[in-house]
Design a protein around this nucleic acid. Structure first.
Lengths: 304, 304
DNA sequence: CGGGCTTATACTCATCACGAGTAGTAGAAA
DNA sequence: TTTCTACTACTCGTGATGAGTATAAGCCCG
């Protein structure tokens, strides 16, 4: 079962979605493109034993970053996504990786973009973002009114589920579904009819789609793996921890319940130190590694 | 941030992990290799708009299968994994997809392998598999006793978490961690010192690793997405549904609670028909699509 | 034709996770 | 001393989940 002749040459690149959270703002590492910002990328060389090591190598070489947590995200290989510098007609395979760095990591010369500048409809921390009701919902309604009866039904259902409309609940994890829907509807700059009219900052090619994928993955993972700690310094207060989780989830959490969850699960242990805040000083904590042995799904956010 | 010269040519293939569940047995579609069985694979051609469409195309062309549910699994790109027919020194990128087909799908001329013949330590439906205590645990203990003090600690922790030893709970989802650990320890045929001594049926290259990845992904997904229905006929009894879920999870479920979960969540609706069984006839049900709108995470198995 | 087998189906009970809220405490700044 | 901010300790109600008891409905076999 192997296709014989006619194979096209394939170009493979690695793309890095490097995330950090600074002061309640989730940021993604970008580099300047000719026109739009793009994600840092590179190619694996023969010396790289694994793709992940290749990624770590060039993140270090080119941005001076020592990546902590790294996980493969998705491989993008649609035909129409080739960049300028790709041979026409060739398929470009991009293996995207999600990497998390600590707040204290050097910012190098590269630019960090606020994830919610890229995907403004995803941030519900200050309540429902106005752009949803002002622009997105009406546009979705127009879009869902087109086509045959069955088509209309399918479109409406898709929109409802993705954006939590007509009774469906907003699901933070469905970031990719939302981005792709907005793309189809023509509401994001990369696909907008007139330039400059899209919602959120545009990026090169399909890089914003990759960021959306990363955010969704991370939002899911936070609930069952202790990944947030990769974004925090060694010692942190519970409020700092909560702010980072909220930044990722894009919604506020109940403070008392959050503490109950985190402490009750044995996810953290007190360092014994305290840290001055703008109010009563807070005790600082560190991640408690033993939780991995004790709990099958040690998460820092409620499952819902 | 783009690596310049020295790029190596890259060969990309698509690998399909096609799963079905027949009579309580989860099976994966295999083709005969020169030596060991392998997964069906192919290459995307210029006519395939997306990788997923390419996969569907050649699954249809070559096995006569109409794939239902398809999801991208992982991209494997380690240096040492190249097959025979690859140019020496070139990196082979394999984008693996997980596909689910209904029990009634045509079996074609290809062979289906029992997933638990490949990964015998994963099936806990009949209690803890003997191979665990007979062979795996002792070998892990020997392996964990080697190296420096810190190394020994790290090894022991890894083994404990992966296999649920010394107090840790068995986590069905950690299939890949377990396979990789067994590989490192030399307990699987692909890596065994002497051929024929490995645990479970071996497959070509790293294909068994891919199956392990697929099983883990599916075990996780079952708890929050209604994917099982892709493996079942249109109408089914609740016991049939339960058996399929158990086959995937590799563990038994409490019947009454399972029914409560599935019916309570609105995941199924009665067809009105009944089906003869070896006891009292059972009502048949079908998947209820509307649940997607009602529940954010409509799963068919408890979260734990 | 009735006992015994198998499977389906209906409840109960205890525990725990989680959302939501009340109340009081500790330090800093004005 | 007041006031602000943030920390910390509880309580309550609901719903999910594990475990078990009880009953119903067909089938097979003697």
């Amino acid at each position: 079962m192997t296709t014989g002749a006619g194979d096209q040459p394939t170009l493979a690149t690695l793309e890095a979605i490097v995330l950090a959270v600074t002061g309640g703002t989730p940021r993604v590492l970008c580099v300047d493109g000719d026109d739009l910002p793009r994600l840092p990328a590179g190619r694996p060389s023969a010396g790289d034993r694994t793709l992940e090591l290749a990624l770590r190598r060039f993140a270090n070489e080119q941005a001076g970053l020592d990546l902590g947590y790294v996980e493969q995200l998705y491989t993008f290989g649609d035909m129409n996504r080739a960049g300028r510098d790709a041979p026409a007609g060739a398929r470009v395979l991009s293996v995207a990786y999600l990497a998390l760095v600590h707040e204290t990591a050097p910012l190098a010369g590269s630019a960090w973009s606020d994830v919610y500048d890229l995907l403004p409809w995803e941030d519900h921390r200050g309540g429902r973002p106005p752009v949803l009701d002002d622009r997105i919902v009406p546009a979705l309604a127009r879009w869902a009114a087109k086509g045959s009866r069955v088509e209309r039904r399918a479109r409406a259902e898709r929109a409802d589920i993705a954006f939590g409309l007509s009774g469906a609940a907003w699901d933070g994890v469905r970031t990719l579904e939302r981005y792709e829907l907005l793309y189809e509807v023509g509401l994001v700059g990369e696909a907008a009819a007139r330039p400059g009219t899209g919602i959120g900052l545009a990026m090169a090619i399909d890089h914003r789609r990759m960021v959306a994928t990363a955010l969704g993955r991370l939002r899911g993972k936070v609930t069952y793996r202790p990944v947030v700690f990769e974004l925090l310094p060694e010692a942190f207060t519970l409020l700092q921890l909560q702010r980072v989780v909220e930044a990722l989830l894009g919604r506020m959490l109940h403070k008392q319940n959050f503490r109950r969850l985190v402490e009750g699960a044995g996810l953290v242990e007190p360092t014994g130190e305290r840290q001055a805040t703008s109010g009563r000083p807070a005790a600082t904590f560190r991640f408690r590694r033993e939780v991995l042995r004790e709990r099958a799904r040690p998460g820092v956010a409620p499952t819902a």
